[in-house]
Design a protein around this nucleic acid. Structure first.
Lengths: 68, 68
DNA sequence: ATTAATTGTAACATATATATTGCAAAATTC
DNA sequence: GAATTTTGCAATATATATGTTACAATTAAT
C-alpha cells in the first residue's frame, strides 16, 4: 500500500509524532502507513490529507496495474 | 462516511451484487459503504475506483469542514 | 564521540472492517 | 398484482486496522 505521506509530511516539516498528534493517532500508525505496511482506513486517509493539505489522489492514488 | 459509489455504480449499470463480485467482496459490504455506514479500507476504495473507472477524489473526497 | 531526537519494529490487546447467512422491504418485470 | 430482482438490515464470526508499551536503530545536534 504505497503512498506519498512521508514526502508530504517532510515538505511541511512535521515529525511522525507531530503528524500523529495532529491527527489523533499513534506515531506507530503513521510509521507503518509511510512504510506501506498498513492498509489505512478512508477516514484516516482523509485526516492525513487534511493535515498535510493534499487530496486523496495526491497522496494515495495508485494507477491500476494493467490486467491483460 | 459519505461517498459517490452508488451514483457511479448505477452510471455503469451494475447491481451491488455485480460490483461486489467484480471486486471480490460481499454485497453487504458494498451496501453498507453506499449507505455511508462503513469506513472502508484504502485498498477497497481503490478497488471500487478501478471497477467503476473513477479516482479516489471523485468517489471519496470530502471537503474538510472548517474548524473554529 | 556523546547525547538527544527521530524512526523502525515487535508482542500483545482492542476496536472495527468485512464475511456469512438469512430474511424482509422495495423496486422491476411480466 | 404476482413473480423476480435488487436492496436493506440483523446476528454472529473472523480478519485486520489501530492502540499500547517498550526497546533498538538511525539520524541530527552539541
Amino acid at each position: 500500500m504505497e503512498n506519498k505521506v512521508k514526502v508530504a509530511r517532510i515538505q511541511i516539516n512535521l515529525t511522525q509524532q507531530q503528524l500523529a498528534e495532529k491527527i489523533g493517532v499513534t506515531r506507530q500508525t503513521i510509521s507503518l502507513i509511510e512504510k506501506g505496511k498498513y492498509n489505512p482506513t478512508l477516514k484516516l486517509c482523509l485526516d492525513i490529507c487534511y493535515s498535510v493539505n493534499k487530496t486523496l489522489d495526491e497522496l494515495f492514488w495508485i494507477e491500476k496495474e494493467r490486467e491483460e
